[in-house]
């Protein structure tokens, strides 16, 4: 199975973080797992990278971001807006996948229309999803 160097999970729900982490570790092939508890924290990681190249010992930037929508301080869509403004250019493109409980048509369309988003996964995260992501975006 292909390997993904680093995955960033952006979610405020501890149970969902644990579920995604579990399946990525067990059934995927992910070397590093990073967690941000809301959009603001996630954005801060990218801002630190932009200003002072903070790579967290090579774990950053992530290859894949699993991004929740409904989070306090900065929700998923707000994060995407602010992330786009950073205009970061990475050697390897960062893949952003929405990971959310929302099956609201408006959210799905909004994600679909955002050029930064490459997939929409409804929770709970699963073994099959972990395998699919590694095959598609791993090396």
């Amino acid at each position: 199975m292909k390997t993904i160097r680093s995955v960033l999970i952006v979610d405020d729900n501890q149970a969902d973080i644990e579920i995604a982490s579990y399946f990525l570790n067990k059934n995927g092939n992910v070397r590093n797992l990073l967690v941000a508890e809301d959009g603001k924290e996630a954005l801060s990681l990218f801002e630190q990278f932009q200003s002072s190249c903070v790579t967290l010992n090579g774990k950053f930037p992530p290859r894949v971001i699993l991004l929740d929508i409904n989070m306090p301080k900065l929700n998923g869509f707000e994060f995407l807006e602010r992330y786009a403004e950073l205009n970061l250019d990475f050697n390897q493109p960062v893949v952003i996948l929405m990971l959310t409980s929302s099956e609201f048509v408006g959210d799905i369309e909004k994600a679909d229309n955002n050029p930064l988003v490459q997939g929409y996964i409804t929770k709970p995260f699963s073994r099959e999803k972990a395998i699919e992501i590694c095959e598609k975006f791993g090396e």
């Binding site: 929770k123 699963s126 073994r127």
Partner: peptide, 9 residues
């Protein structure tokens, strides 16, 4: 959904 995921684990 969280409970469902945890049940899978």
């Amino acid at each position: 959904k969280s409970i469902k995921g945890l049940v899978h684990i």
